[in-house]
């Protein structure tokens, strides 16, 4: 959609989040020889058979699709590590550290590099559970760092996808608190109930003059 970002919407579409995630680096093992790639986004390679090298995820997936490499699953995507994270997520109200784009990275790898992920069904199921537990924590696990006049939240360890979900929810909830506690609220009269940002009607301007 060609919409400008609205204050009450998600600023980034899922496709855009994936686009950002595709720049994360990942290790591949090429099965071909290729000269170094001098991209605008950086220099990668040269590529030699069986010699592992780091490339951005979009490049890894492109090479994998064309049968030119295998992808090394990132360390955090093992059954052991993920099981630990899941347990910690369940035990604590806080969010556990995870790669910022863990949702998008895992999705891309599931779609395009299934055979490179050991115990993929287990891994997939663990990540789904982790996503779930974290999603349900969003209401309670965020630290309020200020609640006098200006509400502020610390979103420690939240991932890109979760931040994207939280943003509109947090925005309208906090804005409500903000407005209710704001002294300006008393002077504001009719607020035209409208989706679009409108100039606040500051009430009748006419002075009743006494002579």
């Amino acid at each position: 959609m060609a919409c400008a970002s609205e204050p009450h919407g998600s600023a980034f579409s899922a496709a855009e989040l994936e686009f950002l995630a595709e720049d994360e680096m990942i290790e591949i093992v090429p099965n071909l020889s290729m000269k170094a790639l001098n991209f605008i986004s950086g220099d990668f390679g040269p590529f030699r058979p069986q010699i592992a090298t780091q490339v951005p995820l979009w490049l890894a997936v492109a090479l994998k699709k064309r049968g030119k490499c295998t992808i090394r699953a990132p360390e955090w995507m093992s059954v052991d590590k993920l099981a630990q994270v899941l347990e910690a997520e369940r035990d604590s109200e806080k969010f556990q550290p995870l790669p910022f784009h863990y949702v998008e990275i895992s999705r891309l790898l599931f779609d395009h590099a299934r055979d490179d992920i050991p115990d993929i069904y287990m891994v997939r199921s663990l990540i789904e559970d982790i996503k779930d537990v974290r999603f349900h924590k969003i209401g309670t696990g965020l630290e309020i760092i200020s609640k006098e006049r200006t509400y502020a939240l610390r979103l420690k360890n939240l991932s890109a996808m979760e931040a994207n979900i939280v943003r509109p929810f947090v925005t309208s909830a906090l804005e409500t608190f903000y407005k209710l506690s704001s002294s300006e609220m008393i002077q504001e009269s009719n607020h035209v109930p409208n989706r679009q940002p409108q100039a606040t009607n500051r009430g009748p301007r006419r002075q009743l003059k006494d002579r």
Binding site: S146, E148, T150, L153, R154
Partner: peptide, 24 residues
């Protein structure tokens, strides 16, 4: 200082995510 209303200032850690009013 989150705003000039004289409220308590807060500490912002590096590299952590925060939800704040843009104005601040």
């Amino acid at each position: 200082q989150l705003d000039d209303g004289g409220e308590e200032p807060v500490n912002i850690e590096a590299d952590d995510l925060y939800a704040l009013p843009y104005k601040s």
